[in-house]
Amino acid sequence: MATYELTINGKQYQVDAEEDMPLLWVLRDLLDMKGTKFGCGQALCGACTVMLGDSAVRSCTLPVSAVGSGAVTTIEGLSENGDHPLQKAWIEHIVPQCGYCQSGQIMNAAALLKNNPTPSEDEIDQAMAGNLCRCGTYNRIKEAIFTAAT
């Protein structure tokens, strides 16, 4: 057990955790931030995606000890009032069905647009390939990313 100083959504948190505990469970179980979801635990589905700096990371396989001083952004901190361009585009295209995968989809898309503000269809396909949606909302996700990118 060790103590970690984390920067999440612009705030400082101190947590006591085993060093191998993935960031996902630190967020969900220790900090009660439930927006980030558990889907596979093996970096295979993207449900747990958060941003570390400007990159999308799978929090289910990122040990808390490896987070360091990087700024973590979760769905709760993407925007103050739910009005990030991606969130607005998601609403405009009525993207979600069950909604479960969508935190991860949006955070992954946010990282994509940070690094590539006007992605092509192929680039979106490749960047989003790690995020599963069993309900099958891929086409609306893509349209929403295009909308947010313009």
Partner: peptide
Amino acid sequence: KDTPIIDLKDFVTGKAVFGADVN
């Protein structure tokens, strides 16, 4: 008509409560 689902905003802000989210 095309009527938007009521949980839309909660879904895109991470506020929607699924099974494992109850504490």
